[in-house]
């Protein structure tokens, strides 16, 4: 394989990885953000305590979070197939990634929202704000720095999972690293692939930190 071929393969792999990670993060937040808000709101010290509901959600999330990602990936293959028509490849991997991401994102959102000072919530309630307004304009708005740090962590974690999915033909950089490094002993390609993954992670962390700092007004 020539250098240009390798370069093209890596470029495609990077693109696939990015698509996988971004889509999974997006779907992960579409599910995880409302779920996290629901957790923080129904908690015993929340805006509308609902202990029974909280307990049920809490248990479901703990169960899904304790299943190792690779096992989850295999467990839900029938489900993945039902949704996207096949159980391998870039698009198919988005399904298990999203399923793994939702509970974990929900937990991070829950903890970010719980950090918001209760006094500010009370101030809003005392001004006659609706609960929904409190959620959007106080809880989420005040927690935004912490939420953004959470996004950075989520993207990083999903990037790591996506590489793991390479073992079962998940597509992207992880797939390349495993195919060449593990099955064909082409160590150089594996190393280059891993370096690209590391760079992606670094870049992501850097951008994430930069944005959340820029948006934080508590630093003056």
């Amino acid at each position: 394989m020539g250098l240009t071929d390798i370069a093209k393969m890596l470029a495609d792999g990077t693109k696939d990885t990015l698509i996988m990670v971004l889509l999974s993060t997006l779907f992960g937040y579409i599910g995880g953000l409302p779920l996290g808000v629901l957790l923080s709101v129904t908690d015993e010290n929340g805006l509308k305590p609902m202990p029974a509901l909280y307990m049920v959600l809490d248990i479901i999330i703990n169960i899904t979070r304790s299943i190792p990602f690779l096992i989850l990936l295999i467990l839900i293959q029938p489900f993945t197939k039902a949704i996207v028509g096949k159980s391998y490849g870039t698009v198919a991997t988005v399904v298990p990634l999203t399923v793994a991401a939702i509970p974990f994102i929900a937990r991070m959102v829950e903890s970010s929202v719980k950090e918001v000072d209760k006094g500010v919530v009370e101030a809003a309630l005392s001004l006659g704000a609706k609960k929904f307004t409190v959620i959007t304009k106080v809880l989420l708005a005040e927690a935004r720095t912490s939420l953004l740090v959470g996004v950075t962590i989520a993207v990083g974690t999903i990037l790591g999972y996506s590489a793991m999915a390479g073992i079962v033909g998940g597509g992207g950089l992880g797939d390349i690293a495993i195919r060449y490094g593990y099955y064909r002993y082409e160590t150089e390609i594996m190393i280059v692939t891993v370096v690209v993954l590391v760079l992606l992670m670094q870049l992501l962390q850097w951008v994430g930190t930069l944005i959340s700092k820029k948006l934080d007004r508590r630093r003056g």
Partner: peptide, 16 residues
Amino acid sequence: RRKIAMIFQQFNLLMQ
């Protein structure tokens, strides 16, 4: 409640 404003020891302003 809109007719009853409240101020607090810890001010409780929106920090962001």
